[in-house]
């Protein structure tokens, strides 16, 4: 079975190292926070000025002045801090954030990321902090479905949508596989057992490298 979103989030969470400063992109990547293994201390950064961001509060505890980058109410963990936007993005661009998990419309074989605009010009574009994060975090993980709803591969030779950053992605986590972007190309590290390498290749718009592929098998979530 292809992974559901919680399972992709679980898989990414296993990859996050103890002591890491991590920024989770708005939307699907936020799920990753739910699956951090218990014996690891991870500090979450929110680009609107929080380090040590905690989970969503009870409704009665919500505070309009304490929100995350997706403008949802959050909490502050003991030891957390607040700071202004300039300092927050100094953390981002200055290489102080260990890892950022972002969603994607498209990813190219050399790690270009497109996740802020499509080719539809009728709606106003909006970039937020995506370009700063893409270029600034030490590591970029992409969390995405392997293909779009109509089955078009999201991993391709070159992105057709406007880029967020060039050559920025390190690893792609999809519902079918874990793929590292290396100097040799797209290396499949893990895949689900239900599909063959050839089937995975057919769902991918750029050549994959097959070498010592492990099974991608998260728990039922």
């Amino acid at each position: 079975m292809p992974l559901n979103r919680n399972q992709i989030a679980w898989r990414i969470a296993q990859e996050i190292e103890d002591g890491n400063y991590v920024n989770l992109g708005i939307g699907m990547p936020e799920l990753v926070a739910n699956y951090i293994p218990e014996n690891r201390e991870i500090i979450f950064h929110s680009e609107n000025g929080i380090l040590g961001m905690g989970p969503q509060p009870e409704k009665s505890e919500e505070d309009g002045d304490l929100i995350n980058a997706g403008k949802k109410p959050v909490t502050l963990l003991t030891g957390g801090s607040y700071f202004n936007h300039t300092d927050s993005f100094a953390m981002v661009r200055g290489g102080h954030i260990d890892l950022c998990v972002l969603g994607a419309f498209q990813i190219s074989k050399n790690g270009d990321l497109a996740n802020w605009a499509t080719l539809d010009n009728s709606k106003p574009p909006g970039v937020g902090g995506a370009m700063d994060l893409a270029v600034g975090a030490k590591s970029i993980f992409v969390m995405t479905e392997h293909c779009t709803k109509d089955g078009t591969p999201k991993i391709m030779e070159e992105c057709s949508y406007p880029l967020t950053g060039q050559g920025v992605v390190n690893t792609i986590f999809t519902d079918l596989a874990v793929i590292d972007i290396t100097s040799e190309g797209l290396k499949v590290r893990e895949k689900i057992n239900e599909i063959s390498f050839m089937e995975l290749q057919n769902k991918t718009g750029a050549p994959l490298i097959e070498s010592d592929i492990k099974e991608l098998s998260p728990p039922v979530l």
């Binding site: 202004n84 300039t86 993005f89 661009r93 370009m131 700063d132 600034g136």
Partner: peptide
Amino acid sequence: PQGTLSERMRAAGAGIGGFFTPTSA
């Protein structure tokens, strides 16, 4: 971009004539 927006204002306030950022390259 959000970080550029904030830094452009900081630069104005700090008397800096501009800056080079990797964001949006």
